[in-house]
Computed example of a mutant assay.
Amino acid sequence: MTVPKQIVTNQIVTEQSATKWGAALHIPDAVTIDGQDWSVRRAWPAGDSRIAWEAFLPGQGFRVGYLDEHGATVLDADRDPKLPGLARLLADGGRLVSHRPGKRAVVRLPDGSFAKCVRDGKASDVIAGQRRAIGFLPGFALPQVLSSDSSTVVLSVVPGVELHDPARLGAEWSRAWAESLDAWAQAEAHPTSTVAAAAPEMPTAMPFHGAADEVEVLRTWRERARPLLETARSVRGETLLADVDELITEVTISLDDGTASARDGSIGLIHRDLHDKQIMWDPISGPGLLDVDTASRGERALDLGNLRAHARWRTEQGLWTPAEAAVVIDEIARVVPASGIDPARVSVYERATLIRLACVYAFRPAWIDRIGWLIEAAHAM
């Protein structure tokens, strides 16, 4: 894939002066703060022609800010005016784990627990997601809500290692994935109150995420990434935006195939963003599940398609070997028939995930020149 000049690597933007490139089209590899270059790891659309970014410097941690037509704005260290709980947690000895400015931050507290910092009034959404996810018990360990206020939720640690990291799991890689897929297959279609849940005053209404909702997710991400996609071209010479539009049209038709969905009949509890970084595994306590805010009812094929797309992408990223990815793909293939899921529905949701990942990774400087692979993989299905 040809990378346009506007998004080539090794761009640096300083906090002292505005640059001439438009922020909607250019995400730098680094921002210079007090004379040091911080690597931009992730970025997100932030509305109003702005892009939010998170940068990292070894030994220094994270800094965040925004890009717009005037250049880069860097937030004060350990501060975010839209996340009122963040400064206090860090002042009390917490360590920043991730930070999407204006939206969410995760802080590891001195006692080992984790705090999610969100906008004021949004903590209830996190707690409600925790309650909706109780149907993943007992197959998965889930974090428990230890305390909360209007903008912060403190969660217990889920033991184990992320299934993103095969090197740390070593010879246990296959066992960890087999047990994790078995745990996923056990999830209750309708969670009950038999498991103690956090914040019992919160409603437990279970939203339904259907095919039309998934199409809307794709269209939303397409619009977010549009300025980046319309300037890059695929191997066929088309803009990536044209490719994405074509793929969304095809996937919409497939997802709207009500006959296939009805024949499958596998509607139940889903995570909605299931991938390797959301699953923990410990040889004693077994699998654990993270970030369950999006838990809902829907086609269970969605979770497996999402997981399989990520496994394929990890190989392309060079993070997993083909053999390591094959373990995950084989375990998914094992649980599909056992769970009564139509394999065709897994494939169409996998294709949808590949399209969405192309849009998401368009905002990540390290991967912008590889998103053509995601689009080609979606075309090939």
Rank of each mutant, 00 (worst) to 15 (best):
T315W: 14
A232K: 11
R132H: 12
D34Q: 10
Q278M: 01
P365Y: 11
I375K: 06
A323R: 11
W38I: 12
T204Y: 10
I27E: 14
A295W: 03
A72G: 06
G93Q: 01
W177R: 00
P101C: 05
A87Y: 03
D34T: 08
K82N: 09
T152F: 03
A23S: 14
A378M: 11
Q278Y: 01
I267R: 05
R63Q: 07
G129S: 04
R226C: 09
D80G: 04
L86M: 07
E179S: 03
A323H: 03
V145K: 02
V40W: 04
Q130L: 10
W53A: 01
D276K: 00
E179H: 02
P337A: 07
D68Y: 15
L374H: 07
K20N: 14
V8P: 13
L25M: 13
S98F: 04
D291M: 09
A105D: 08
D37G: 03
P81S: 09
S49Q: 11
I375T: 11
G129D: 06
T239R: 15
A183N: 05
A344Q: 08
D282C: 03
A344C: 03
A295P: 09
A344R: 02
V3Q: 15
H379S: 04
A358S: 14
D48C: 12
D92A: 02
P166I: 07
G102T: 06
R308T: 09
A366F: 11
A295D: 07
S180A: 08
S296K: 11
A77R: 13
V107L: 00
R233I: 04
H310E: 14
D48V: 14
K20A: 09
I332P: 06
R297N: 11
L241V: 14
E214P: 10
C117D: 10
R50E: 15
R132I: 14
V97D: 01
R79P: 00
N10F: 15
A46R: 05
R168G: 06
L181D: 04
L90V: 04
D182R: 03
R95M: 03
V217R: 15
M206H: 09
R351F: 01
S285N: 06
A378C: 04
V244A: 13
W173P: 06
D80E: 08
V244D: 09
G93F: 08
Q11M: 12
S17Q: 10
R168K: 14
A115V: 00
V126E: 13
V158Q: 01
A128H: 06
G61Q: 08
W177D: 02
S98I: 12
Q60D: 12
G135V: 06
M206I: 13
A115M: 00
G286A: 02
V360K: 15
D342P: 00
S285I: 00
K103V: 10
P138Y: 07
T315C: 14
D165R: 07
H26A: 15
R79D: 14
T32N: 11
S193I: 12
G340Y: 08
L319F: 11
V346W: 01
K103W: 05
A141V: 03
V107P: 03
D111F: 05
G61M: 03
E162A: 05
R300H: 01
T321I: 10
A23H: 07
Q317W: 08
G305H: 02
A199E: 08
W313M: 12
P138G: 05
P143H: 02
K20Q: 13
R226H: 13
T231E: 13
A260W: 01
A225I: 07
W173R: 10
P101M: 02
G65Q: 08
